[in-house]
């Protein structure tokens, strides 16, 4: 990780010095354990603030939307896939970007770390595949694979799909992954069980919209939940309004979601919101053979018509 960080800083400093870019978007060290803050370096001196570790789970593509500058951006696998989606959707232009690709080895789930030490965490130290957690209750060392964000455990695109320069050799991609076990479990439920499952899942939702706002796909100038003439969705935390918000938001991400996990990571009340987008990801893969953000040369399935598109649902 430290090698990555040195390389990121060196590339960023060079780009800024040579005026190749106006700014570089990356991460700086957070003020609390396991949290880093998205950061913009505008001078070569500021690039020493750029860091990289296993707590860079926020999707930086979120910070590109409609920017006009020339931008250097640090991108792990999922960020790069969202950059591709952003370019395809005209939210940024390819030649505005200098993509600093980071082969990713997965981001750590701060909730799993907290569970491992049963509460407060003072410090988290990474050493290769081992993570040492220091807390008031003592130290504990865990294997990184056991505390990864769920989306990272299921990730098949750790290496950036688009980049101008890599900070290291690509890492081996994970194979033999069953990415959709959780979705199949719900698909197998009967209707009443599904309803009960979704109601319980969304019961804690406080409608803070952290999931939506952390998502690089959610860039609509006015989100449907914020429309008020007419108002489509109630503003209270009524169960029906909560479900309407989450279902509809997920559908808007169909064929676009890269399962970067930003939504789930951001949720302050720990709702596993990826279950919705995961289902749509599975459908897009099964129906259209599509995974989002792999290439600039193919249009997403929901904005092209192909004669062989499945249409069994139409009577």
């Amino acid at each position: 990780m430290l090698q990555y960080q040195d390389k990121i800083q060196a590339i960023a400093a060079r780009l800024l010095k040579e005026c190749k870019v106006d700014l570089v978007i990356g991460f700086r060290r957070g003020t609390v354990p396991m949290m880093n803050e998205p950061y913009v370096a505008r001078t070569a001196e500021q690039t020493t603030n750029l860091i990289w570790d296993s707590h860079c789970g926020i999707n930086l593509t979120n910070y590109l939307t409609d920017r006009k500058e020339k931008i250097g951006i640090v991108a792990k696998g999922c960020d790069s896939r969202n950059i591709v989606t952003h370019i395809l959707e005209n939210k940024i232009e390819r030649d505005q970007l200098y993509i600093i690709g980071v082969p990713c080895q997965g981001m750590v789930d701060k909730r799993k770390i907290a569970q491992a030490v049963n509460g407060a965490v003072d410090q988290v130290i990474e050493n290769g595949n081992e993570i040492t957690i220091k807390g008031p209750a003592g130290d504990k060392t865990v294997t990184k694979a056991d505390v990864l964000q769920n989306n990272c455990s299921l990730c098949k695109h750790r290496n950036p799909t688009i980049h101008d320069e890599m900070v290291a050799e690509p890492v081996a991609e994970q194979t033999d992954i069953d990415a959709y076990e959780s979705v199949r479990a719900i698909e197998a439920m009967d209707i009443d069980a599904k309803r009960a499952y979704f109601e319980k899942l969304l019961e804690p939702c406080i409608r803070c919209y952290a999931c939506r706002n952390a998502c690089p796909l959610c860039y609509c100038p006015t989100c449907f939940v914020d429309e008020h003439r007419p108002q489509w969705v109630g503003k209270s935390t009524d169960p029906v309004d909560n479900m309407t918000f989450h279902f509809l938001r997920a559908y808007h991400c169909a064929g676009r979601c890269t399962d970067c996990g930003a939504c789930e990571r951001a949720c302050p009340v720990g709702i596993k919101v990826r279950i919705f987008t995961k289902k749509l990801e599975k459908d897009c893969l099964e129906l259209f053979g599509w995974e989002a953000g792999l290439s600039l040369d193919t249009r997403p399935p929901l904005d092209v018509y192909r004669p062989e598109d499945p249409d069994d649902f139409i009577k």
């Binding site: 209707i191 599904k194 279902f247 249409d311 649902f313 139409i314 009577k315």
Partner: peptide, 25 residues
């Protein structure tokens, strides 16, 4: 989503297929 099968239906009906439209409705 928990909606019963059959409550949501899709059909493709040409503007020339009035009888199909009536049948489907």
């Amino acid at each position: 989503m928990g909606i019963e099968p059959g409550r949501l239906q899709f059909s493709w009906i040409s503007s020339a297929e009035s009888t199909k439209f009536v049948d489907v409705v």
